[in-house]
């Protein structure tokens, strides 16, 4: 199991599979931070640094994709999506072009740069776009495998990545599949559906609960759309109570996606959603922000306990 940021997994994978002539990579002037530079250094002919102009980048990627290329358009999540709602809707989603939007530095996890750099509405936004697949890997290995999977998957995708290093959860025996959730640990009585860096926070919460013999189930939902309804229904019924955890606003993200699945399938169990409580955060370290805004392992721990009372 390899520790590392999901953005590092993305960069390493692009470098590894980059010989495929169908792959083109674009960046909006932040390629060192997004790690797309690793591909650019090795395959300069198929790397296009478009400068700080995300709208132009996304549409250029769409143009490249109309000729049969798999176009990875990379940037910081906040600007990649924040500045290209229209371009993403028209040139990518409605046109159904083979563009992979890859947004790094998502969520409060980006830390001290503050709310203008903390993208917390991207899952809500991309989930609401027809034709769009939405993916958020939980660790380095899953980011590598997800990047590989995107090459063979036709159609618009948003992949949400993070800046900080996370502990390895998976080794190479893991098989990522678009649309499938993964049971990290089968427990009982409560199931935690987590995504991205919150899978790691949930694992820490589980350690805190272990001493009291509380063993919840942990499911990694790395494809937010199309979501693994079957697994969510099965685990909700099996465990009897649900916690969702995401580094994202509480409106429209994973928590709501899980609610939708449970509601559509008449599953009535207690549910608690953890996420940013519809507010802009502030500057601070990841740990401080997660603690203050309700995303920390302790919050997950307390929420699980409260459901067992």
């Amino acid at each position: 199991m390899k520790d590392g940021a999901t953005r590092d997994g993305y960069g390493a994978c692009l470098e590894e599979i980059g010989a495929n002539p169908k792959i083109v990579v674009l960046d909006a002037g932040v390629s060192d931070s997004t790690r797309s530079k690793k591909f650019g250094d090795k395959y300069p002919d198929r790397f296009f640094n478009m400068g700080i102009s995300e709208g132009d980048m996304v549409c250029t990627a769409a143009g490249l994709a109309t000729t049969g290329k798999v176009a990875f358009a990379t940037g910081f999540a906040c600007f990649l999506l924040g500045r290209t709602m229209d371009q993403t809707l028209v040139s990518v989603a409605y046109s159904n072009t083979n563009v992979k939007l890859v947004g790094t530095h998502s969520g409060l996890a980006v830390g001290e740069d503050g709310p203008t750099a903390q993208m917390i509405v991207d899952l809500a936004y991309t989930r609401a776009i027809p034709n769009m697949t939405v993916i958020q890997p939980a660790d380095y290995e899953e980011a590598v495998q997800a990047t590989k999977a995107l090459v063979d998957h036709f159609g618009p995708v948003y992949m949400r990545l993070g800046r900080p290093k996370v502990k390895g959860i998976y080794d190479s025996s893991y098989k990522f599949q678009i649309g499938k959730g993964n049971v990290v640990k089968q427990g009982e009585k409560v199931v935690i559906f987590a995504t991205g860096g919150m899978v790691q926070e949930s694992m820490e919460a589980m350690k805190l609960l272990e001493s009291d013999n509380i063993n919840p189930t942990l499911v990694n939902i790395s494809t937010i759309k199309p979501i693994d309804s079957e697994l969510i229904v099965e685990q909700a019924r099996k465990n009897g109570a649900v916690v969702t955890a995401e580094d994202h606003n509480i409106i429209g993200g994973l928590g709501d996606a899980v609610l939708e699945v449970l509601s559509d399938n008449d599953v009535t169990v207690p549910i608690r959603r953890l996420g940013v409580r519809d507010t802009f955060a502030e500057t601070g370290s990841l740990k401080e922000l997660y603690f203050k805004y309700g995303l920390s392992a302790q919050h997950i721990e307390n929420t699980v306990r409260s459901l067992l009372k």
Binding site: G55, A62, G63, L64, A65, Q87, S91, Y94
Partner: peptide, 18 residues
């Protein structure tokens, strides 16, 4: 490609040209 929101076509055309 779909168009109708002004300002996107030149970027798209440029991508095809690349």
């Amino acid at each position: 490609i779909a168009t109708g929101s002004l300002g996107q076509g030149l970027s798209v055309a440029h991508g095809i040209a690349l």
